[in-house]
Computed example of a mutant assay.
Amino acid sequence: MSTYTVVVAESQTLFRDMITNFVEDMDEFCVIGKLKNGQEVINFITEKEVRPYLCLLDIHMPIMDGMACAKKLKEVYPNIKVVLLSAYDDETSIERVISVGADGYILKSSGLDEFKETLRFIIDGKFVAPQKMVHYFSKRLDTLLKLERESSLHYIKEHFNHRQDFNKREWQIIQLMKKGWTNRMIADHLGISEGTVKNYLSIIYKKLEIKNRVELLQMLSEMTG
Rank of each mutant, 00 (worst) to 15 (best):
126 K>N: 15
207 K>L: 04
94 I>V: 13
148 E>S: 02
5 T>W: 00
55 C>M: 09
125 G>H: 11
171 W>I: 12
115 F>C: 11
116 K>I: 07
188 D>N: 08
151 S>H: 10
19 I>F: 13
56 L>I: 15
191 G>S: 11
16 R>S: 11
183 N>M: 08
200 Y>D: 09
155 Y>H: 06
146 K>C: 01
108 K>D: 05
205 Y>S: 09
70 A>Q: 03
47 E>I: 05
154 H>E: 01
31 V>E: 12
35 L>G: 09
87 A>H: 06
169 R>I: 12
224 T>D: 14
37 N>E: 01
120 R>T: 14
7 V>P: 00
85 L>M: 10
111 G>W: 08
131 Q>A: 07
107 L>P: 05
119 L>T: 12
159 H>K: 15
31 V>F: 00
183 N>C: 11
204 I>W: 02
143 T>Q: 09
112 L>P: 00
173 I>V: 14
182 T>C: 08
202 S>Y: 04
28 E>F: 00
29 F>D: 15
5 T>C: 03
129 A>I: 06
19 I>A: 12
30 C>E: 13
113 D>R: 05
10 E>Q: 12
212 N>I: 08
121 F>G: 08
120 R>L: 10
159 H>Q: 11
41 V>H: 07
18 M>R: 04
90 D>F: 04
90 D>G: 13
115 F>Q: 06
205 Y>A: 08
192 I>C: 11
56 L>V: 12
71 K>W: 07
104 G>L: 07
19 I>D: 13
182 T>Y: 01
171 W>L: 13
101 G>L: 15
180 G>W: 01
11 S>V: 08
138 S>G: 06
124 D>G: 05
200 Y>G: 07
176 L>W: 07
